[in-house]
């Protein structure tokens, strides 16, 4: 229970911290950290406009997208505390339920009949497809290292002991950070602040969403950030008791948000044609982690 509350709590300020970091590094004061949430609440209260081309798919997709992200949060543990549910193979469920949301967000973009949204949908489908193997091999490596196949058991038995395991932890954090960026369509894969539809990915897919639906999609984005932040935090929390663990959790979330803000301030977006190579390279890093685990377990004899 504590994990979902913490995720929801950090989702409230996560996006605000990214914005604030970006503002400060570019020499502006910037809005308060709660501004994104205020925006969403304002959206929830608004009416909506639907395109004449769209069908029922377009209306139901944002709801399903949001629900899948919420469901995915349920299996994330918090240190030595289980998530709402925990079972063997829950990370498979995690990845597939996110894929369900992605499926609906793609077909909802295609439902508008706009060529811009089609372009964004095509890119999103391709990139998230390439990001999947990295995630599965990463979790598979830790399943091998700990002998368990659920998020909770993996994290609660994971002890970063020797220098090589620290390296593995660092690499894993890097891979997860990059998967987060791909999943949330942020730099260096996609730039949420771009003003030209041709260069957008995620933003262009939701061009026609408005009102409550847009609010749902944005909230789902914040939740996704906090969710991946929670996974990264779990790598380092280990067996701490509730209060210090919660403090560390929040600290890591803030740090994670700041890092994302810094990346977005100092990096440029890749050329579209370089993105697949970059994302495929993530799988190789995952494979490196896998080999590292083999080294730790002394499977190379």
């Amino acid at each position: 229970m504590s994990s979902i509350l913490l995720i929801l709590f950090s989702a409230i300020f996560f996006s605000g911290i990214i914005l604030r970091t970006k503002s400060i590094t570019s020499g502006r004061k910037g809005p308060g950290v709660l501004q994104p949430i205020k925006d969403v609440i304002r959206l929830f209260k608004k009416g909506a406009i639907y395109s004449e081309t769209t069908s029922i798919v377009f209306r139901i997709a944002p709801v399903i997208y949001f629900s899948t992200v919420l469901m995915a949060c349920l299996v994330i543990p918090f240190g030595s505390y289980k998530g709402i549910v925990s079972f063997d193979g829950d990370f498979i469920f995690f990845a597939y339920i996110l894929a369900l949301g992605k499926f609906f967000s793609i077909i909802s973009a295609m439902d508008t009949g706009s060529s811009f949204e089609g372009m964004g949908a095509s890119r999103e489908a391709l990139y998230s497809m390439f990001a999947e193997p990295a995630f599965f091999i990463l979790i598979g490596s830790f399943a091998l290292l700990t002998g368990h196949t659920s998020f909770y058991n993996i994290f609660s038995t994971l002890h970063l002991g020797s220098s090589i395991t620290y390296t593995l932890g660092g690499l894993a954090a890097f891979v997860l950070l990059m998967i987060t960026m791909v999943e949330n369509s942020r730099l260096p894969v996609d730039d949420p602040k771009t003003h030209l539809e041709l260069t957008m990915i995620h933003e262009v897919m939701i061009l026609d969403n408005s009102g409550f639906d847009l609010g749902l999609i944005l909230t789902a984005g914040y939740l996704k950030f906090a969710m991946f932040g929670a996974i990264i935090a779990d790598f380092f929390i280990g067996g701490l008791t509730l209060v210090p663990a919660a403090a560390l959790f929040i600290l890591i979330q803030i740090l994670f948000a700041t890092v994302i803000g810094m990346i977005e301030s100092f990096m440029a977006r890749f050329r579209m044609s370089h993105n697949p190579q970059f994302i495929l390279a993530l799988s190789s890093v995952s494979f490196l982690i896998f080999l590292g685990v083999l080294l730790v377990l002394e499977k190379f004899v």
């Binding site: 209260k45 009416g47 639907y50 395109s51 081309t53 769209t54």
Partner: peptide
């Protein structure tokens, strides 16, 4: 919830945004 929130709001339809 969506139904509840948008019960008194204006729900319009228009053409797809074509930039």
């Amino acid at each position: 919830l969506r139904k509840y929130f948008s019960r008194k709001k204006l729900i319009e339809s228009g053409p797809t945004w074509g930039c």
